[in-house]
């Protein structure tokens, strides 16, 4: 089973993100960039399927040169090949542009299954996977918290508001996975060494035959960015054995009990 996993490099989630006030793009300077932790679950899912059913995992990323580091990490975990699409024109891409680029690169590779995370840690539009599926003309089984395959079809436990749905899907398909789907492996030292010599295709949008993608074509423009209204902090007490009484008084005061 040939699996393509979409991976994104994001500012370290432990630092607070910021938009550049001038360009209104995500500020990437001065913050450490990492492989989106959410994508590690997709890589792991792809590796497990390829190990069980043959085939290989290719990781595809759209991002600046530096995103090569994220691809290398995926290769170190065990992916066989990377594809990085970088282009100045792609700066400021919206979800749909991103999806067009990813879908074109995935088509070029060929695939039985495409795996993504449910949402990126920095942008979290959570719509790229569905868009990619539409552009590839295949079903999208999103929010998979469990994923099994016999090599020809998929059995997915898909999160819902009230529990989960069991979904059966034929291949090819797109699946987006949550953090409950597996326990991602750490790259081994051997894996890290091997990653250095694994192939990474570097592509531009022109090489993918795309035009009309990127920041300049976005159908939306950010007009303002403002800090959200903050809640005022209230009373903070140390528990001296009386805190429970205080909580009950508080509940009484709000008339919920």
């Amino acid at each position: 089973m040939n699996v393509v996993v979409c991976v994104k490099q994001v500012p370290d989630p432990n630092s607070t993100g910021q938009l550049d006030p001038a360009t209104k793009n995500l500020r990437r300077e001065g913050v450490e960039l990492v492989l989106d932790p959410g994508d590690e679950f997709g890589i792991e899912a792809g590796l497990q399927l390829a190990e069980a059913h043959g085939g290989q995992v290719t990781v595809v990323s759209m991002g600046p040169e530096k995103a090569l580091d994220a691809i290398r990490k995926a290769l170190a975990m065990g992916a066989a090949k990377g594809v990085l699409i970088s282009d100045d024109a792609l700066r400021g891409s919206d979800a749909l542009s991103t999806a067009k680029v990813l879908a074109a690169a995935i088509k070029r590779e060929g695939f039985d299954l495409v795996i993504t995370a449910t949402e990126s840690t920095d942008g979290y539009t959570g719509t790229v996977p569905q868009m990619v599926a539409e552009l590839l003309g295949v079903p999208a089984v999103t929010f998979a918290k469990g994923l099994e395959s016999d090599g020809k079809s998929l059995k997915v436990q898909r999160q819902t508001e009230t529990g989960y749905d069991r979904v059966e899907a034929t291949l090819p398909a797109v699946v987006s996975v949550t953090a409950s789907v597996n326990e991602p492996r750490y790259p081994s030292l051997k894996g890290i060494m091997a990653a250095k010599s694994k192939p990474v295709d570097r592509l531009t949008t022109a090489e993918l035959g795309l035009d009309g993608v990127g920041g300049a074509t976005a159908g939306q423009t950010i007009v303002s960015v403002e800090p959200a209204e903050e809640r005022k902090a209230g009373e903070i007490i140390a528990d001296d054995g009386e805190a429970a009484k205080r909580i009950v008084q508080f509940l009484e005061a709000t008339k919920v009990i």
Binding site: A95, L96, T125, Q130, M131, E134, A140, Q220
Partner: peptide, 14 residues
């Protein structure tokens, strides 16, 4: 929403 936006080639804001 995601599939519809891709189909119609229009933006979606999440």
């Amino acid at each position: 929403a995601g599939r519809l936006a891709a189909k119609l080639d229009v933006p979606v804001i999440a």
